[in-house]
């Protein structure tokens, strides 16, 4: 009978897409909870955020989770590129006339484009903050005798209207959050379908939750940054 192993099949590639995608949704929640502390202004906010940021780079459990996240992003991206390549190969001659909007959503057809935008964003975003936090020359805040990297000040300075690039950074950040939202709009409930988790009663709930997630999570990420920009204007 079947000779192929699990990992080589088309369905397995989709299971991997779904599992890594859902894991990355959890990561988004974790990241967002941290970012929301940037709403706290003044010294209280600075201390809360920097203590949190220090915890995120020093706690061994978080470290393990972060490696899992890097791996998931890589795997999700590579798997996505492989699947897209195979899918293009499956239709070597395209139609002269197509009406895809008659039967499917724009998001569902453009996951690769949205994902690529997100991947570029992740690289730039990590250069801007992750790299600074780990390897850059950072301002220091001392809390309880511990020297903390003052990421709070770095973020506020990055999105300070006085900076010439701040408005461009803000616009690109918000645009990237739109890509995240559109990607999740389809991706969240799609992962459940790929894993075979479909149910007459629960699927509409999953779809609603997925779409709410797609609006609220990127919306809050963007709101934090817009707030930082406006409050310093």
């Amino acid at each position: 009978m079947a000779k192929s192993g699990l990992l080589s099949s088309s369905l397995a590639k989709k299971y991997a897409m779904a599992a890594t995608g859902l894991f990355l949704c959890l990561f988004l929640v974790g990241h967002l909870v941290g970012n929301l502390q940037l709403f706290i202004s003044g010294e209280a906010g600075r201390e809360a955020f920097n203590v949190y940021a220090h915890f995120m780079v020093s706690n061994p459990a978080v470290k393990l989770l972060s490696y899992l996240t890097y791996l998931s992003i890589l795997f999700h991206a590579v798997d996505g590129f492989v699947l897209t390549k195979l899918n293009r190969k499956a239709r070597p001659v395209s139609y002269a006339v197509e009406k895809p909007s008659e039967n499917s959503s724009w998001m569902s057809r453009n996951m690769m484009v949205l994902g690529t935008i997100m991947l570029v964003f992740i690289v730039v975003h990590m250069q801007n903050f992750w790299w600074q936090m780990h390897f850059g020359a950072m301002p220091i805040q001392v809390v309880d005798g511990v020297e903390l990297h003052d990421l709070y000040t770095v973020v506020y300075a990055f999105f300070n209207p006085a900076e010439s690039m701040a408005l461009l950074s803000l616009a690109l950040y918000v645009a990237a959050m739109f890509a995240v939202g559109f990607h999740l709009w389809h991706g969240f409930s799609s992962s459940f379908q790929s894993l075979g988790l479909r149910h007459a009663k629960y699927t509409p709930i999953i779809r609603f939750f997925g779409r709410a997630f797609a609006v609220v999570v990127p919306g809050l990420f963007a709101a934090v940054v817009v707030y930082i920009y406006l409050i310093q204007a």
């Binding site: 009978m1 080589s8 088309s10 899918n87 190969k89 239709r91 039967n103 057809r109 790929s194």
Partner: peptide
């Protein structure tokens, strides 16, 4: 055996992968 055999053949024939667009159902 059925699901394994049929999925394997589907892949061998060069059909693409499902991205859950739902166009087929429509």
């Amino acid at each position: 055996a059925r699901v394994e055999g049929m999925v394997e053949q589907m892949d061998l024939e060069g059909f693409g992968n499902c991205t859950n667009t739902g166009a087929c159902e429509v």
